[in-house]
Nucleic acid binder design. Structure first.
Lengths: 200, 200
DNA sequence: GACACTGGAGAGTGCCACTATCCATCATGG
DNA sequence: CCATGATGGATAGTGGCACTCTCCAGTGTC
């Protein structure tokens, strides 16, 4: 299929597809001549993935590139898969520690996590920002939130481990992480309505 | 306190404070002459709130204005409070229905929610986008996610109802919704690491 | 051989959160 | 009493980002 047909199939303008090719988030087609290339179903899927990540996931195009590069690289062992995916998604964030609050929380929960990793640090920053804005995030509240998100993570792991191949598992972790986030946040609001109605 | 002192206290440049005044997200100080005004502690707190919402919450400045307007308006009754806060936070989103998947899900869970509200619609859109990107979101998976977020919502409700005044409850709902979202997402990633380590 | 289409590259657009400039008006010190 | 400097107010400029447009020479197609 030619680029104009790819544009028609995906609903994305040709100009934007060229832009994606330039930015390296869409793999080039197999050239059929010096001025034309052939695109297949994998390109259609890639375009859908890019649009989903950029539009609904809020990922910048440069971030999409590192993600698709990780998806194309030979998949790591099942144990390293999650770490690799997380490092890809977190990007080269700051390397400061998680902060005392988060360290205490993780120890209290007994979670065996990478305490100096990018997400523990991100958690510390998010907690600090929320508290600076006036949110009453006591240690007990954080623990209850953490236990609820642990249940979410169990579902995530079930989905990833049910994948047929390591490559598919990687894809599921990345897409599931980025694209399911908005689903969870929307569920939170709807659940608030339900809980409020039930208590009334 | 003068605007330069407010800038010093909050670490925000004077130019930016003027910009916030123009955009209506920072309330004007009490004028002491035609070329000076007096700012108090409530302005310091407001600036912190605005910075938190814009920087860490990803809320556009125009959205911050509707939020602070809702916070300044006379607080609604306790039963309407959540709905008012949600409508403020959701903005004038599309008014299409939630979609069949979400309607089935909510009915299966037995949640009494505003099925035509903005968040049910947002949930439908998020689920569609995630599926378009290739996430395997079966109805069963959605139900498990929903139950976990229900636990989160119970914590949210506890926090809001523990507020001393309706105005404080409103503040807690808004800040808790916007600023706790990143905390939850960070917790999800950390919980994934913990769950993965435990299963290894 | 006319014409549309292709890949490639540079420059322009629109949005947004600032950020800088300019100016008349006070506020204060010498 | 006037020079200096901060203030509020308005206008315009900046930088980042995701496109989007324009141009080009080289095909494929009729």
């Amino acid at each position: 299929m030619r680029i104009s047909q790819l544009a028609e199939r995906t609903g994305v303008p040709v100009h934007t597809l060229k832009y994606y090719l330039r930015e390296g988030v869409l793999q080039p087609g197999t050239p059929t001549s010096r001025t034309s290339a052939d695109y297949g179903e994998e390109h259609v899927e890639r375009v859908r993935l890019v649009r989903a990540l950029v539009e609904h996931g809020g990922v910048p195009v440069a971030g999409v590139r590192t993600i698709v590069e990780a998806l194309e690289a030979p998949p790591p062992s099942r144990h390293e898969l999650l770490g690799t995916a997380h490092c890809t998604l977190a990007g080269p964030g700051g390397d400061e520690g998680p902060g005392e609050v988060v360290a205490d929380l993780l120890e209290g929960l007994g979670w065996r996590v990478w305490a100096d990793g990018p997400f523990a640090a991100a958690l510390g920053r998010a907690v600090e920002a929320a508290r600076a804005a006036g949110a009453p995030l006591s240690e007990d509240v954080l623990r209850r939130y953490a236990e609820a998100m642990r249940a979410v993570a169990e579902v995530d792991l079930d989905l990833a481990l049910a994948a047929g191949s390591p490559a598919e598992a990687m894809h599921r972790v990345v897409v599931g992480t980025v694209m399911v986030d908005p689903v969870l946040l929307a569920l939170r609001r709807v659940a608030q309505e339900a809980a409020s109605a039930e208590r009334a």
